[in-house]
Every structure is written in C-alpha cells, then in structure tokens.
C-alpha cells in the first residue's frame, strides 16, 4: 500500500501535489477528532489522501475531487460547509446580525449625539 502511495505521489506534478495538499487540509478525517486528513496519520486519512491524489491524477478539478469524497463518505468530510440549502443560514446569518446590530448601534449613537449637543 505504501508503495502505491509513493507511486501516485510520484505521478503528480508539484503543482498537482500542492493542490492535493490544499484539498486535504479542508477535508475532515472522519475517524479522528480535530484533524484534517492532511494532519492525520490514521489509516483512513491515508486512504483519503490517496483518493484525492488519484482523482487529481485522473484529471478531476477541485470541486470534483470534493464531490467524489462527499459521495463516498458523506458531507461531514467537508470542513468548509457548502452554502447550499439550509446551510445558507450558516453563511448569511452573521452578516445579517452585523447589519441589524449596526442599525442598533447607529440609533444609539445618534441618540447619544443628540443628548450631547
């Protein structure tokens, strides 16, 4: 198996290897805690790293590689959650809170300015 890993590593151009590393950093190692597959030495993490390298060698783009992993291991592997469906809340809600809060702060500061003058 190690030989296979090395074989595939050898098959990737440095650019592709860097891409593989970058993708691996954002993929959760599902059997470990607090680690991406790039950080982990668990057997599954090695397998997943190899899959990433294989897919890249096969000509997949980054999104396709991630899609392949999601199809195989579930959405939980994505450390950067998608913005699809209900997940839009995750990405949009903080901005909305910021806007609402800014309105509140604005009214408060304006009130303060009036009282001060």
């Amino acid at each position: 198996m190690i030989a296979a890993v090395l074989l595939f590593l050898a098959a990737l151009t440095p650019e592709q290897a860097a891409r593989a590393e970058r993708i691996a950093k954002d993929i959760r190692c599902v059997v470990c805690q607090n680690q991406s597959v790039a950080d982990s030495e668990a057997e599954l993490a090695k397998v997943m790293r190899r899959i990433i390298e294989e897919r890249i060698a096969a000509g997949d783009n980054d999104a396709e590689v991630r899609g392949y992993l999601v199809a195989r291991y579930g959405e939980t592997v994505l450390l950067r959650p998608t913005a699809e469906g209900a997940n839009i809340v995750l990405w949009a809600a903080p901005a909305m809170v910021l806007v609402l809060g800014a309105l509140w702060a604005f009214s408060l500061l304006r009130g303060g300015a009036k009282a001060a003058s």
Binding site: R28, E75, T76, L79, R80, P81, A86, N87, W91, P94
Partner: peptide
C-alpha cells in the same frame, strides 16, 4: 432536523 451530518471547521471560521 434533516438527518444530514455536516462539519463546520477552520475554513468557515477563518473566512467569516
């Protein structure tokens, strides 16, 4: 709610 398991990891927090 939906039964789907997702992760929210460092890339999300860094970006936000």
């Amino acid at each position: 709610q939906t039964g789907s398991r997702i992760s929210v990891g460092p890339p999300y927090y860094n970006a936000m």
